[in-house]
Amino acid sequence: MKRSELVSRILITVAVIGAVGAPLFFWSQSSLMHARVAESGGWNPNIIRADVGAPLHLRLTSDDVVHGFAVGQMNMDGVDVLPGKVTDLTLTFDKPGTYTFYCTRWCGLNHWRMRGTIEVGGSNTDAEPAPAPLYVSLGLDIDAPHEAPAIPSQMPSAFRGESLIRGLAISQFINSDFYRVHSPYETFENLDQYPLGESQRWDVVAYIWQSNTTLESLANGKKLYAQNCAACHGENGAGNGVFADDLLPSPNSGGGGDEVRSMIQTPANFTDPKRILGASPALLQGKILRGGMGTGMPMWGSIFTEGQIWDLIAFIYSFQFEYQN
């Protein structure tokens, strides 16, 4: 064989082996964490182990649509996980335990199923037990009906309420111990000792609810609501978000027809006064923490901090009350 022929054959072989081998090698060295919509498998891997105090490096990529990544209970802003791109992220955990990470950008009806866990091991494995949430210590049945027996004829206004309370002793209502365990309707009932008309009492309730929160809380609640709730509950709280219809089986899919449809719970309508004015913050906290048990409502207990949930609840009441800006 002539030398040029031999060299050419070697070159072809090397080129092909190189074109296969080099990328295969680098590919096998890269450890990416893949995000896919829940229907295609969600996170891969979805269980991660880490140690207390040791930085955990994650290289995140999406295989389909825009996702986001955040770890629950850490008050952490999500990072974007973009299709075909790699996001580098370093996390450090102070406490051992099991953390939930979740997708922070809506990626379809089953977005909230896109969760995984980080198991953080460490020396002090006996972490202090979390205190029981309020609804548990109160023994509330959060699935029981809680409709307000009476509702205001117009939207209660905190501004009008403020002008009505001059000379009235209502300070016992403005503290979280009272606020969290009473529904607006119960507060309305409690106000009947005062010389006020019905709509005036509702205005005072609005004022009390506003006084039990802060502008920062409301703003934070609004942000959390837009990111996590509005897709089902609607941007205006009316329970008509873009996924609300998808939660029902379609009428022509043969899935049981009207009977089944009427049994399936649609996203709560926060603009419905009966529903919200009859619910105490503790009750709402329970619903958010635990989730909807078989409805599309996710369980948020492992995601939100307690403070975030109270902010969210404060914002939900703003669908019922006119607050001052």
Binding site: A15, V16, A19, P23, S62, D64, P83, G84
Partner: peptide, 28 residues
Amino acid sequence: LAVFIVMLAGYVFAILAGLIGTPVGSHN
């Protein structure tokens, strides 16, 4: 032949990229 070799390497690489690279078409 030189062009052929470069093309063949690119072609084989394209096959491999399609199989092991990101499933996102616009970035593969």
